[in-house]
Design a protein around this nucleic acid. Structure first.
Lengths: 213, 213
DNA sequence: CGTTGAGTTGACCATCGTCAACAGGAGTGG
DNA sequence: CCACTCCTGTTGACGATGGTCAACTCAACG
């Protein structure tokens, strides 16, 4: 997002930012509460989830450094956010942020493009959940996550998984057991290696082929 | 969207609009082609879909009168659109529309809110596909569609279904047979009645309860 | 009257969810 | 240091949900 900013605007934005941090498992904000802030994640990762009427939970996404949270600009948050690891972020007062955006149309334009892109990703996720087998879903998830991490540790084959199996299962519309089995099977077949808090993708070619289908 | 406009802006917008119509099964635009237009649907309904690498197709949504199509403002369309019935729409040249939007920040703001809302709906759809049984998905679909039609035929209990069972199945991550079975079961239980090109929801209370879960 | 395409129904079976047992690590307290 | 608990994750057995394949109905259309 900051790519859309002139240098002097970056300064302006930074002046509004307040650095904040959260411990593991700490909630950044809940679902359906008045949204008074916008966050730009600088380190750590975050789980985004919705609660269903019956108390169950669906994970709608994971945020990693660089991602924005709470952008929807609606009165209330549409999902909750919880730190998966220790997290640092820049927190912006919502009104000030909105005011800045209002007098910088190209910023708003950038926000709009971001939202459109998110929408496109959500539709892709719908396809993944609706039309793919458990193994394919897990592989898509790992490949996709690797791509997102790639902007930092370039082209590393090790994917950090700060979230629990339960989170992954909730994200993919599976159960924890099925996720575990799929990962075990891929490990048995030497397509990947399970390491502490992550996996190492050994046979990228094969995995890409499964994800492509 | 037009609610965000001043009267004189509405006039301006209307001046740009070019009425177009499409026959049943006619493609309005394909996926991944240069997007040069924006549409506001005035009558009929439309199927929005993505093609998967292997040729299968996922329906990502249905548009009914009042809905906007092709709003994403990206260079290329992210989904295809095909008329389910005869369709009339207002077509706007993309550049002219973008120009108008650029000099009317509150219009852009409105677009942004629309995209955010779409995103929220897409996330809900993820939950429905990922965490609900076939019957629940079908009921959610019917109830949701009824709500959307409600802005026209107020509080009618008859839901038009211009799309095929295959479309519904592709939207819900099911097969055509499963959709058919779910509908038949609900009809047997007198929760709904199948009518030509639609269903009549007989036991709304029961259906709402299934959808609520 | 035959053809086509959408929809329905049935039989069978695979995938994935459920339930249960178990392993390993972290934290706690004696 | 060890026993204990708690939590996450793994593995197995079993069964239900929903997919696959096939036959059939029905309406539209020539």
């Amino acid at each position: 997002m900051c790519g859309a900013l002139e240098p002097h605007e970056l300064v302006e934005l930074e002046a509004m930012a307040r650095p904040v941090c959260y411990g593991q498992r700490q909630q950044m904000f809940a679902q359906d509460e008045p949204s008074d802030s916008v966050y730009n994640l600088t380190s750590g990762s975050v789980r985004l989830y919705r609660l269903l009427p019956d108390g169950r939970r669906q994970v709608v996404g994971f945020a990693i450094p660089g991602d924005f949270l709470g952008l929807s600009m609606s009165e209330r948050t549409v999902y909750g956010a919880e730190a998966l690891t220790a997290v640092t972020a820049c927190k912006f007062n919502r009104e000030a942020f909105a005011a800045l955006v209002d007098e910088r149309p190209h910023l708003l334009r950038r926000l709009y493009d971001l939202a459109s892109h998110e929408l496109s990703l959500a539709q892709e996720q719908m396809v993944i959940i609706g039309r793919r087998t458990a193994e394919e879903r897990v592989v898509c998830f790992l490949i996709g996550l690797r791509k997102r991490w790639a902007q930092f540790n370039h082209n590393s084959v090790t994917v950090p998984l700060p979230m629990t199996r339960q989170d992954i299962a909730d994200f993919l519309g599976l159960t924890i057991e099925t996720v575990s089995r799929a990962v075990s099977k891929l490990a048995r077949e030497k397509a990947l290696l399970v390491v502490p808090d992550g996996v190492r993708l050994l046979d990228l070619e094969r995995l890409e082929k499964i994800a492509a289908r």
